[in-house]
């Protein structure tokens, strides 16, 4: 599914993406949104071309912040589907591999829905149809009555083998953890198989390495903080440059060394403030937030050097995701009664 016929067409896709990028919300828009109520945010979105259609389509079924969140997800899906429709050849492969994270999201959402006996309609609402899975496959997946049936439906997809291997563990342990980890690991493994050699893709390669390094670092810290007797190497994702599985296993038991390792790495400058804060903090949230911001800084610089590569497209994908995350954070924050300053501190605006 990830190798659509034809030659790569970055010029065409980049031109389309550039026009979409120009309509993304600016810093000023966020500043306005932070001072609006959820109803005003919904109205603001209704007046924005990017969300008007989704708000109107979902307005009869959802209300309040739920309407905003579902409209954001629908707009994200619509945007990324367009990109996949426009892209051809190698470009399609790169973009599709990255967008498989939404396929992974959908697989996990359906498995959780089946596991918790959630109604089909409610599970369908929570899907983000932004990946490679077409509606027919997703409908078949939603029709599955058991986890085993869902794994069977997915057997022909890129997650099929990983899920089949994890099914025994699921059946013996009775929790979804092995299946969810298998799906996420399959996503990262497939991302790693992407051929990113060549100068034009070096920024994108560096970005993916950073994403994997950051995920390994935060997961190691989460395991260390949880106090559980878990082997960090089991949760290690291949493809980063900062740690090997063995090193991560060793560093997870000594978080000070882990922090030092990150500080001395190529990410050290970007993360120096967050690392200093992390040393004395009980919470990992601020550090996680700093990692996300650092990752988005990487993403923001993508495509500046090689404008006719996959990187501007990936940069737009990440910028759109960031916009969706920011608007949702503002709406949910307002719903929860958080101060505008507190909400602003949670936003990632580059």
């Amino acid at each position: 599914m990830s190798s659509r016929a034809g030659t790569s067409n970055p010029e065409y896709v980049n031109a389309r993406v550039r026009s979409r990028r120009s309509s993304l919300f600016e810093e000023d828009d966020y500043r306005k949104l932070v001072r609006m109520s959820p109803a005003e945010i919904a109205r603001f979105m209704e007046e924005s071309p990017a969300y008007e259609e989704e708000i109107n389509a979902l307005g009869s079924r959802f209300s309040g912040v739920d309407l905003i969140e579902y409209a954001l997800n629908a707009s994200l899906a619509e945007d990324f589907e367009d990109i996949l429709r426009w892209a051809e050849g190698e470009l399609y492969g790169h973009v599709a591999r990255y967008l498989r994270k939404f396929d992974a999201w959908n697989v996990k959402t359906v498995l959780r829905g089946i596991y918790s006996d959630t109604e089909r309609e409610a599970v369908a609402d929570d899907l983000i149809r932004a990946g490679e899975f077409d509606d027919r496959l997703l409908d078949r997946l939603l029709d599955a009555g058991t986890v085993e049936e869902a794994v069977e439906v997915l057997s022909s997809t890129v997650f099929g083998d990983a899920l089949a291997d994890a099914l025994d563990d699921y059946e013996s342990e009775g929790v979804l953890v092995p299946l969810e980890n298998a799906v996420d690991r399959a996503y990262y493994d497939l991302l790693r198989t992407d051929d990113l050699s060549g100068e034009a893709l070096s920024e994108y390669r560096e970005f993916l390495e950073a994403e994997i390094d950051f995920r390994n670092a935060i997961n190691a810290l989460r395991l260390a903080r949880s106090g559980a007797d878990l082997d960090p190497s089991e949760y290690y994702i291949e493809g980063g440059v900062l740690f090997s599985a063995g090193e991560l296993q060793q560093l997870a038991s000594n978080t000070d060394e882990l922090i030092d390792r990150v500080r001395e790495s190529r990410y050290g400058d970007r993360l120096s403030d967050a690392l200093a804060e992390l040393e004395g903090a009980e919470s990992l949230i601020a550090f996680e937030h700093a990692l996300e911001a650092a990752l988005l800084e990487y993403a923001d610089s993508l495509g500046l050097i090689h404008p006719l590569s996959v990187t501007p497209v990936v940069s737009y994908v990440l910028a759109k995701e960031r916009e969706v995350d920011n608007i949702r954070a503002i709406a949910r924050g307002k719903e929860a009664g958080l101060d505008p300053e507190e909400i602003e501190s949670e936003l990632v605006i580059i």
């Binding site: 996990k108 959780r112 596991y115 953890v177 996503y187 106090g227 878990l230």
Partner: peptide, 11 residues
């Protein structure tokens, strides 16, 4: 524990 909460750790 982190691996007993049902959701996957990686994602």
């Amino acid at each position: 524990d982190l691996d007993e909460r049902g959701y996957g750790v990686l994602g």
